[in-house]
Simulated scan of single mutants.
Amino acid sequence: MTRLQLHRLLLGLVVLFVVGAAVLYVLSIALASGGGGVARHFDQLAMLSFLGAVLFGIVDFFVRPVMHRTADGSRDVHTPLNG
């Protein structure tokens, strides 16, 4: 797996976790009338999901491919993970 592929995988996980956090937060607001315990549970899950997105984002920051400038001005991103 190249760094670019790993970067895309981690970025996809970050987006998935952020969307999950947003959905869980909206559910916690919608379920607030049903009882504070249920809403609090969904709110805690939303916070954990957001924390997961932040952690995957930090890992992605260090995995992000080093893009070397080529002669034609484009970027070369095909750097292998261990190379």
Rank of each mutant, 00 (worst) to 15 (best):
A21R: 01
H78K: 12
L4N: 07
Y25M: 07
N82Q: 08
R69K: 13
F50D: 04
V23E: 04
S33P: 05
L4G: 05
G20Y: 06
T70K: 09
R75T: 00
A30R: 08
L6H: 10
V23S: 05
R40M: 07
H7K: 14
L48A: 13
S49L: 10
R69W: 08
S74A: 10
G83F: 03
H41Q: 07
P65M: 06
V26A: 15
V23F: 04
V77A: 11
L11C: 08
M67G: 10
R75E: 09
T70F: 00
R64F: 04
A39N: 00
T70D: 01
T79Q: 14
G37E: 13
L6P: 01
H7P: 08
L27A: 10
R64C: 04
V23L: 11
L24D: 01
L11P: 02
R3F: 04
G57K: 06
D43F: 12
M47I: 15
M1W: 08
G57W: 06
L11H: 12
G52W: 02
A39E: 03
D76T: 02
G37T: 12
G83T: 09
T79N: 11
H68A: 10
D43S: 14
G52R: 07
R64E: 04
R75K: 13
Q5E: 15
I58W: 01
L13N: 11
A30N: 11
V19P: 02
G37I: 13
L24E: 11
L51N: 08
H7V: 02
D60N: 14
G83R: 12
V18M: 14
Q5K: 13
N82G: 00
L55W: 06
T79K: 12
R75D: 07
A30K: 09
A46S: 11
G36Y: 02
G36N: 12
G34L: 12
L6F: 05
M47A: 15
H68S: 09
G35W: 01
L81C: 05
V77I: 13
M67D: 09
R69P: 09
R40E: 11
D72F: 00
A30V: 15
V38H: 06
I58A: 11
Q44C: 13
V18S: 13
Q5A: 14
F17W: 12
L13G: 10
V26C: 04
H7R: 15
M1T: 00
G12D: 10
L51K: 07
G34T: 12
G12M: 07
G52V: 05
S28P: 05
A53E: 08
M47R: 14
T79S: 11
S74N: 13
